[in-house]
Design a binder for these strands. Structure first.
Lengths: 189, 189
DNA sequence: TGCAGTTGCCTAACCCTTTTAGGCAACTTA
DNA sequence: TAAGTTGCCTAAAAGGGTTAGGCAACTGCA
């Protein structure tokens, strides 16, 4: 019988697509085997286990996000950079909800250190160069920005905003205005 | 044989405790049955299914959170209120990680409308009364605050901050300072 | 107090997912 | 083309989710 041509790489990509289609928590080794028209046990030559698959999808998503973020920051500064950077996260979550969900899963410390998560922090720091924040406030600002972007996107995707009136695009603009104002006028001590 | 005295109420509470102990996604009908020393099928007289259990835990968590938030806001205004309110979320997540995770699960629109989620929005609006924001900016500010609180707490709990240097308590204070400054100085248009 | 009706937990059964062990066929290389 | 390796297979066990149907333990009413 002909071989299906599986590989960790292909399985991870297919898993990511599947996540976007049916939700990250619906991604199972079984579902993936079905996609390739292959028996479940066959995947275990390429994946340690189910958790391994999810971790690999998460790492893929973090890479993609960091790539987009780096691209968005190139040649921009100040509010222009802030907007572009923030939109990367929001757009990615909309285009790839499953991957975005994957990117939020908790990684064990070792995996995290090797992941693109580190690049995200560096990129956020780069974004702050356009604002004149005291050195000792940088980390706080990085964390605040991360919180707002992640929080906003996950509430919006989770339907948390869909019950009240003004549309979310308007709010998103105001939030970016507010963050820009805040960074230009960061309170001391 | 003696009856175990199950009820939807007791199962939900036990499920919430279990979530805090072993993680929300480890909460299964089987695990719950084991806790009560009862056969799995027996729970199905009290729960529609596994999803139903999770939804009930989520609703419980939302109620508890709203209760605490209301309590925290009583008699406070301005930054005092902001701090107390924000700490409710952070402390709840630390004390009850499983319940907090439950509170983030997506509810279907009908359930959401009947949930305490609505109270959370109202309470956040009440918090804003201490700041003089134009009426048409209120919803935007509500959403921003929700994003920051949720985003910060979930990143902190997920270990997202644990790799970099300054401790998170310091950042949390700076974030609250920043939000306070922002609300007192909200950019127009 | 005793019986009828209801409720609560049970057994049995089925399906799906995860994971391991061991086998044969299809590729690769010399 | 034979030897070695790799890839997908079958088989099997364990655990979770869910439904159907049964008997025992409670309830309330005569």
């Amino acid at each position: 019988m002909a071989r299906a041509g599986l590989s960790t790489e292909r399985l991870t990509r297919a898993g990511a697509e599947l996540a976007d289609e049916v939700g990250f928590d619906q991604v199972t080794v079984s579902a993936l085997a079905r996609q390739f028209d292959v028996k479940v046990a066959s995947l275990y030559s390429h994946l340690k286990n189910s958790q391994d698959l999810k971790t690999k999808i998460a790492l893929l998503a973090l890479e993609e996000l960091a790539d987009r973020a780096a691209e968005a920051l190139a040649g921009r500064a100040g509010k222009d950079a802030l907007t572009a950077f923030a939109n990367v996260y929001r757009d990615y979550a909309r285009e790839h909800p499953g991957r975005y969900a994957a990117a939020q899963t908790r990684l064990d410390p070792q995996t995290a250190r090797l992941s693109a998560g580190v690049r995200h922090a560096q990129l956020t720091r780069a974004l702050l160069r356009g604002y004149e924040l005291p050195e000792n406030q940088q980390t706080h600002a990085v964390r605040l920005l991360g919180s707002v972007f992640h929080g906003y996107v996950s509430l919006e995707m989770g339907g948390g905003f869909s019950h009240s009136a003004p549309d979310t695009q308007e709010t998103w603009s105001r939030v970016l205005d507010a963050l820009d104002a805040l960074l230009r006028n960061w309170p001391d001590s």
